[in-house]
């Protein structure tokens, strides 16, 4: 009885996984189809109502990839733009948020709770709410239409603070005490003990942050007009909708995200776990 349940359970789980993965599989599948075959996916054949794409490319081709990878330097420009933004913001976030999270978790300030709540509140606000304020600030600083317009506000985001704080909270106080007794300064404690022990949370913040940044749409849409600075996420929608090149580009866009995900997966899970435990 249990065996049956196990099998059916696994079967159902497998089905679930397939469903979850199917859009991505479809994407990869389609990116190898040439424009003739693709038209089957978008336009129903005469006399019928439905357009069915081929599940496997019957006439596989590398043309789409060639078009994107060989013939459009623009793709590479926006690729490096996106990567640059993600890297810069992530680095900045680490520099700013790690100490802040540490501070929140260790300090016994009176207003700690309220301040932290404020942070949470800010974190929860959709971008659109803060959009105007950010615009005003950026305009005053003369940063509109530059890379800094996106990087700076993102660096000061409260989200990594939130995640990292959680994992810092789980570090037992005794370890720190003993370090202090040994004569370590606060910064040293942070660097030598806090970061390694809280690495799960930090990695989680990095991975989640990167994935979010790789997908970023609203900020560049609002703040950047100069085409040279566009990120990949905005470049993709500008390609020809029914062509194969957009599919190939999408497939290539997947790759760095997939890499980051795989690399950080363990820590990501650990970090999420840590953040799920209430203080």
């Amino acid at each position: 009885m249990k065996k049956l349940r196990q099998i059916s359970g696994h079967g159902a789980a497998a089905l679930l996984c397939l469903i979850i993965c199917s859009p991505v599989l479809m994407l990869v599948n389609l990116s190898f189809q040439d424009s003739l075959e693709l038209s089957k996916a978008f336009v129903p054949p005469t006399g019928q109502d439905l357009a069915m794409p081929d599940m496997l490319p019957l006439f596989p081709t590398l043309d789409n990839f060639g078009e994107i990878l060989l013939e459009s330097p623009q793709f590479y420009k926006v690729f490096w733009n996106s990567l640059g933004i993600a890297a810069a913001v992530t680095a900045g976030q680490l520099i700013i948020a790690v100490p802040a999270a540490w501070g929140f978790s260790r300090t016994k300030l009176r207003f700690r709770r309220q301040l932290f709540d404020l942070y949470v509140l800010l974190m929860l606000m959709p971008f659109q709410v803060t959009m105007l304020s950010q615009y005003i600030m950026l305009d005053k600083l003369g940063l509109m239409d530059t890379r800094a317009a996106i990087i700076l506000p993102a660096v000061f985001s409260a989200f990594p603070v939130f995640i990292i704080y959680r994992s810092f909270c789980s570090i037992p106080e005794e370890v720190l005490e003993s370090a202090r007794i040994d004569g370590a300064g606060e910064w040293q404690i942070l660097l030598r003990i806090g970061i390694p022990m809280g690495s799960a949370g930090i990695m989680a913040a990095v991975v989640l942050g990167f994935l979010d940044l790789w997908n970023m749409v609203e900020q560049p849409l609002a703040f950047i007009r100069d085409r040279k600075l566009y990120p990949l996420s905005l470049y993709l929608p500008m390609l020809d909708r029914t062509g194969g090149s957009i599919l190939a580009a999408s497939a290539v866009t997947l790759i760095p995200a997939a890499f980051v995900f795989v690399i950080g997966q363990d820590k990501l899970e650990a970090g999420i776990i840590a953040s799920a435990v209430k203080e």
């Binding site: 013939e71 459009s72 793709f75 590479y76 690729f79």
Partner: peptide
């Protein structure tokens, strides 16, 4: 391995940047 591959991927992308520029 994943880190290495990612690094490799980025290196390939760098090379391809120039290649595509040349073709262009």
């Amino acid at each position: 391995k994943a880190v290495r591959y990612f690094g490799g991927f980025l290196a390939v992308m760098l090379v391809m940047t120039f290649v595509s520029r040349m073709v262009y």
